[in-house]
Write a protein that binds this DNA or RNA. Sequence first.
RNA 1: GCUCAGAUGGUGGAACUGGUAGACACGCAGGACUUAAAAUCCUGUGCCCUUUAAAGGCGUGCGGGUUCGAUUCCCGCUCUGAGUACCA
Length: 939
Amino acid sequence: MDYQFKEIEQKWQQYWAEHRTFRADTTSNKPKYYVLDMFPYPSGAGLHVGHPLGYIASDIFSRYKRLKGFNVLHPMGYDSFGLPAEQYAIQTGQHPAVTTEANVATYRRQLDQIGFSFDWSREVRTSDPAYYKWTQWIFMQLFNSWYNLETNKAEDISTLIEKFNAAGNSEVKAVCDEDTLDFMPSDWANFSEEEKQTELLKYRLTYLKESTVNWCPALGTVLANDEVKDGFSERGGHPVEQKKMMQWSMRISAYAERLLQGLDAIDWPEPIKEMQRNWIGKSVGASVKFSVARGASSGAVPDADRQTQCDIEVFTTRVDTIFGVSFIVLAPEHELVAHLTTDGQRSSVENYIAQTKKKSELDRMADTKTVSGAFTGSYVINPVNQEKVPIWIADYVLAGYGTGAVMGVPSGDQRDWLFATHFNLPIIQILDAQKDIAIEADATKQGKYINSGFINGLSYAEAIAKLNDWLVEEKVGRPKVNYRMRDAIFGRQRYWGEPIPVYFKDGLPYLINEEELPLVLPEIDKYLPTESGEPPLGRATDWTYDNEYEYELSTMPGWAGSSWYWYRYMDAHNNDAFASEEAVAYWKDVDLYIGGAEHATGHLLYSRFWNKFLKDLGHVQEEEPFKKLINQGMIQGRSNFVYRIIDSEGKGTNQFVSYGLRKDFKTSALHVDVNIVENDVLNIEKFKAFRPEFAAAEFILENGRYVCGVEVEKMSKSKFNVVNPDDLIRSYGADTLRMYEMFLGPLEQSKPWNTNGIEGVFKFLRKFWRLFHNEEWAFHVNDSIPSKAELKALHKIIKKVQDDIERFSFNTSVSSFMIAVNELTDLKCKNRQVLEDLVIVLSPYAPHICEELWSLLGNENLSTATYPTFNPEYLAEDTFAYPISVNGKMKMNLDMSLALDENGVRELVLANEQVKGYLEGKEPKKLIFVKGKIVNIVV
RNA sequence: GCUCAGAUGGUGGAACUGGUAGACACGCAGGACUUAAAAUCCUGUGCCCUUUAAAGGCGUGCGGGUUCGAUUCCCGCUCUGAGUACCA
């Protein structure tokens, strides 16, 4: 029979499901290998062709590893909490759980028909209470932990309390809030329960913190940055304001250094590591206190406050330039600004602050050219030389980074230089190697210091060391490492997320009992915030702890459930632990993780954080969760256009002109559904049915066809360029889709989707099928002894595919399969032995057709087969058609024995008549010979 | 602006450590089979010159360099894509 992909694919998908073929087994004595895909959010739009790209690659890898004798864990699940389901619920009143369930069913159906070898018995859904029980449990562990900088790991909060009991907090080295009290053991003992809890909260790894959020009063809700555009909500266009709010936060900053160091040990793409390094943003420098000078300038009456001692702390990476400071700049939002502003400067400072507030964050960042700022009227004393230096405010200083204050050194920093030049502030040269500081700043670290008091004559390294010691000695500063990364906000004022297992008593948060987990999401009448502006959970009735205390009304953010899910797959149905100790000990970590690069600083960073935390507590074994990471490229949409002719009045007509002829007319381009276009040629009949208004359309054709225009855009419904895998599977089958997606190009490269070449892959599979059949489509192989040529073709592909898969070059193996099948077809190979091995080698790519042929060959269960061993002997050659080049230009090929050495080759080459012709009687100066590669004659 | 990735025929791409550029496909052209179409098969297909062939010239974004030899290494530039945002 001809290749009947529909029957074959259905049959084997059913077989795999019934036989639980891909169930991973924790008791196996084979080596383990864990292949993980980033699990999808089940959106209402279903799967598009971009999704499976990574899944196909990981599936090929998993199937290959099974053939290579590994015990492979290859699971799949759903990141099923999220905003779109909630949005939909608000609009329709449908419970998000219901729509999510329906979407999951669609995804499952679509995934199943591609023939993935997932172990579905381990499926997880983050919105399942049996799953989020453990997300909540991890939250509780974080709440009950603090970060000990002495042991450099998280510890149970009880060890902190012991320290408080024994010695108060002066000796405690912890990552904590900045406003901790100083207390002695006796103080601690006398603290009330509330005071103790308040203090402990400042050390807990998850804690409450006042944060600024985008608050939209009209919608009564907090918005993500994405949902705000130019100060207005994207939905509805209502004004959005900044509002301070108590929010749950995760002390990820405690792990900054370990997150940074850990990158060196993992096999990830360098650009992703670089992104994480930048995100963590380590800078080494010093923090220096500048004390505010008493009595401000311009005859202003100093108020009583200003008389009190007050310091401005700055962070700098160039403490060596401190003698060159000619001004200090605070962020306009800095808390001391109002306090420091003199009456004389008040109006201009307030003006400036008002202006800054008006600028959107984007404007403020985009405009690096305009210099702006305002003088506060106050001064600080530079601690190193007692110089009086003016305090300014400017919006280039950010409140959120460092201390929100910088020292201005115009000779060494171009931005400071521009500021000083604009406002006429002094520019002091500090290094003898600095040049042309009248024209621009020179940030050199070369040369010796000048105009720099006690560091005059020193080099950069000497100066830094001396200053750091001096700062500590004089108690005006210290060396400091600063990280850009800030703690992660861990609450959302939404419904469709994990409830936070916390209740409030006397305004303080307490954990619920572990036995009470999961804290199940309560039913509510509407998915909107309450009238008083509380999160949707405020609508729940009879939802209190112990019938008394109010629960936390925020839910966890989207990244909570995805920050540990790979462990759940190890032991998905465990009710007593997130995964059993034995399961974690067996599977350990993810060997290969495939997913999109867009998660570089979100999911991939948070996951590493939670993993390190769980490691500190002894719940998991590895410091890093994902050993190797591969990013698949984004599949873009390829939009097609038709060109409607515009009449003299500017109105669209009924006529459409083909792409090549559109220049002769006035036209407007219209998106046309890519599914009615083939190889950029429009199917006119389908187009007429596309929309009623096109039913009577007329066409100006070129070469008898209507050619469409093309543009690469993001895949989206509104652009009619979404390609759904279902249609392709219907016309070509899953095996063709799988191979075609791989054939498209390198996995990691982003590329537009186009189906132009899919026929070629389909033809290949038919040709492959025909290898096993005779002219009448009857199954036909023989048991003859394989010829040398057949074995050569086979072993070439055995080696090629294994090399390709191991370097994730899937596109090149598809080409090689085509070559192998072409060769074997030409050889009229019907040999059972050869074809059987070929089936195994191809099976990771096209599993259905291979299972069918495998069973026709009389075998059972292809996934338990063994990948054939490559034998280099079959590829060995006696002779080689050496390319002969003259002066580096290839001229001809000459067959010569591979046994020949340079002298033998030289003799043969120079004696050759054709070569003589090329030399035109000239004496060769030199002959380059690379064995098995090339001969080059230099004249 | 900075960082990273990339640029190869009409198209997707191949060439893995510097050694025959354009594998494999798509498309296109021509042919076979067919009443016809589909399917299948065969041939050709980087560009230029040439009636054809042989032969030749030019060719991996642009300009240089290293080398017997460069798509590959180095320097400078242009463009495209992604990320990031005044980080003190």
